[in-house]
Design a protein around this nucleic acid. Structure first.
Lengths: 187, 187
DNA sequence: AATTTCATGTAATTCGTTACATGATTCC
DNA sequence: GGAATCATGTAACGAATTACATGAAATT
């Protein structure tokens, strides 16, 4: 998961660890805060795998920094992680992270991911419905009811995303205008 | 967290590990699935702490089972975990687990827990609002918007719970009728 | 008799956190 | 010159997962 996020950010532009942590919390907001104790070892692992490589600055300037760039291999790993991510579709955080880098996926693949996620949420909904009828106290009941509400809303949201994706897929695809992307703030 | 849940279930009735796992998924539904590799060591730890103790059946019958009962010490530990739980109020799962055992808390304490949770969600909301205005692509924007929606709904739900708690606190408290509790299915 | 379900556990591995350690650079 | 912040890393620890290992009782 962390590796996916790191690769995704590096795809946009090369960065060093400290910067990655900032970008990470900017992109994922309150959903996910990473610590350096997780980040630096992850970078190390990725470098060992050959998914990222160090960039050496021509002019040694300012602070010490280890800037990393995504390699070819890293690109492949990224796409693989992004489209499947181990099929753990019940993982809420995992889905959010993947969505944050969705623009890098092929539209057809996107729809697949969204539909699998939707299926997982339907399962959850059924499970919650069961628990609701089971004997339980008022708090647990409220928990399940609220859980059902939330899940239903998540599903509706997904439906919207899927619909948007389908429209996008059908439309003759000139100049893909999904987002302003990362051209701002040059390294 | 696991320990809290185990203690909470054992408070209702003594059980063995296998049974605990079932009760756990019945109580928390799809929110939390525990594995034996987590459960058995947890029971071991709790026994070592003296929070639970083994119950020896008078008549050795049927399968081999290690049935555990909550001790005095376990009761205290449970209440402590339940009311504070490390003040990690951003932990969604943690809050759900605590709510599942809310009936064991004193009403005044309940309100405190709910209000701290609400405060944490307001923080999250503010954070999400920031991320929304920040430069980001359509998917991330959608993620943040949906996150705000969900968080706002969680807050409303909490408000309801708090209101209900306040009403309950005010009312002259005869025969507390919160739930049918655990008298069913005698061991 | 064979299979399923009940039941308990351990070992290897993964993945993360907190706390610590270190030092350079920039800002005041 | 001193404080803040930038920047990188390691070590100890914690908590969970998966896979493995084992075996008894119940079901078919």
């Amino acid at each position: 998961m962390l590796e996916l996020a790191v690769l995704g950010l590096l795809k946009e532009r090369s960065m060093h660890g400290y910067q990655l942590k900032k970008s990470l919390s900017e992109t994922l907001g309150p959903f996910w805060q990473v610590s350096y104790g997780a980040l630096y070892p992850a970078l190390k692992r990725l470098r060992a795998q050959g998914a990222v490589e160090e960039v050496f600055p021509k002019t040694k300037v300012g602070r010490r920094r280890n800037v990393y760039r995504l390699t070819e291999k890293g690109e492949r790993l990224f796409t693989e992680l992004l489209s499947s991510a181990g099929e753990r579709e019940q993982d809420d955080m995992g889905f959010r992270v993947r969505l944050a880098f969705f623009r890098y996926l092929k539209p057809e693949t996107r729809i697949g991911v969204l539909e699998r996620r939707r299926a997982a949420l339907y399962e959850r909904l059924a499970e919650l419905k069961q628990r609701l009828t089971a004997r339980s106290d008022g708090y647990t009941q409220s928990l399940m009811r609220h859980g059902m509400d939330s899940t239903q809303r998540d599903i509706s949201w997904l439906e919207d995303l899927i619909q948007a994706e389908r429209r996008e897929a059908k439309r003759p695809r000139r100049a893909r205008r999904t987002s302003p992307a990362g051209t701002k703030e040059g390294a």
